[in-house]
Amino acid sequence: MVRAEPDMIRCAVTQERTLPALEAAHIRPYADGGVHEASNGLLLRRDLHSLFDAGYVTVTPELRFEVSRRIRAEFENGRQYYALHGQTIFAPEGTADRPNPAALSWHNDQCFRG
């Protein structure tokens, strides 16, 4: 899903580059009409991928990382995630590989537990 040079493979949010800790996440799941293309994906650290799929974090169409207040309310935790709230993610320069704004809007509207 993510096409990049090995030295460019990093978490879109944290810039982590330890490969066993990274996963390709669908923005809009294939089962919900998403496609298997780079524009429908984000390379995320495993914990962020889990939170993204569960709707506790999202990425806005403007490529800002957002964290739901429900992490604090439901788990009385999340300090390390809230520290990332509002930052711009790192996205590929090429238009075809950048996260699709429509898919990000879908995730914000259908999945995010804001």
Rank of each mutant, 00 (worst) to 15 (best):
D97T: 11
Q87T: 08
F75T: 08
A73L: 14
L104E: 00
N100V: 01
R79I: 06
R79G: 12
Y81N: 01
A91T: 10
A73V: 10
S105V: 04
E76G: 11
W106E: 03
F90A: 11
A83G: 02
A102K: 10
G86T: 10
H107M: 06
Q87M: 06
L84Y: 01
E76T: 13
A91L: 09
P101M: 06
N77P: 01
F90S: 09
W106I: 07
Y82S: 02
A73T: 12
Y81D: 00
P99T: 03
D97R: 14
L84K: 05
A96Q: 15
E74R: 07
A102H: 10
L84A: 05
E74M: 09
R79S: 13
Y81E: 01
R98P: 08
L104N: 00
I89Y: 00
Y82G: 02
E76D: 15
L104Y: 05
P92V: 11
T95K: 14
H107I: 06
P92I: 11
F90N: 07
A96E: 15
I89F: 00
A91N: 10
Q80H: 12
E93G: 10
T88G: 05
Q80S: 07
L104A: 07
Q87R: 05
E93I: 12
Y81H: 02
W106A: 10
G86V: 04
P92T: 10
L104M: 08
A73E: 15
G78Q: 05
W106K: 05
